[in-house]
Design a binder for these strands. Structure first.
Lengths: 99, 99
DNA sequence: TGCATATATGAGCAAGTACTCAGATATATC
DNA sequence: GATATATCTGAGTACTTGCTCATATATGCA
């Protein structure tokens, strides 16, 4: 009998991290942020979904600490919070492109 | 206006890859396979869910080509299909452990 | 103060998902 | 062949999710 599985709590955290990257819209949102910060309506326009939908998605990405919000006047600029996230995203992208 | 988002089809493939790792049970299944191949009932016992549930999950992992099945008699041994998957899993795990 | 703009939020709903249960299939042993 | 074991599969169901729509909040400007 080889190794035991990850304990449930840790596995749930890992799953939640990957779940953040498990939706087409969120992947596209993140892909627009790889090149730098961007405000909500700009993201919405680039990705092609409503500002409300973007806002909802950004909230969960924020709660997962994958993005960081910076308020400037009436606008809120979002950027990727962490190099690791870019790395994960990039590796996922490479994987699907290389086969 | 910074970079454009990933096109929808590619983003959907990336999302599907991460979706495979977005469930607690699947993460635990994968974690048991990191140390080597294992048959279905052994996985079910280790993870603590029914063999039917494991079989269902293994099917989607198989369809995503994340695991490989090797039949030996009545048993089917599964292993991770790809070093990249172990790498993704490990990076996800590291990320949640290091904060 | 009043109005326009930018974003956030909550409710509600259609679609997806992870399980259970019953039954099918395949292989080994008698 | 008959039976037991290992796995797979389809249907059904409770739960989750990503959207829309209406509305709330916050900021800038006249």
């Amino acid at each position: 009998m080889s190794g035991k599985p990850l304990d449930v709590d840790t596995a749930a955290m890992v799953a939640a991290l990957f779940a953040a990257l498990s939706d087409t819209s969120r992947v596209r949102i993140i892909s627009t942020l790889v090149s730098g910060e961007r405000n909500v309506s700009s993201i919405a326009q680039a990705v092609g979904i409503s500002e409300s939908a973007v806002s909802h998605q950004l909230r969960s990405l924020r709660q997962m600490r994958l993005v960081h919000a910076r308020k400037q006047g009436r606008q809120v600029f979002y950027c990727l919070d962490d190099e690791h996230i870019i790395d994960l995203y990039q590796r996922g992208l490479d994987h699907v492109l290389h086969e």
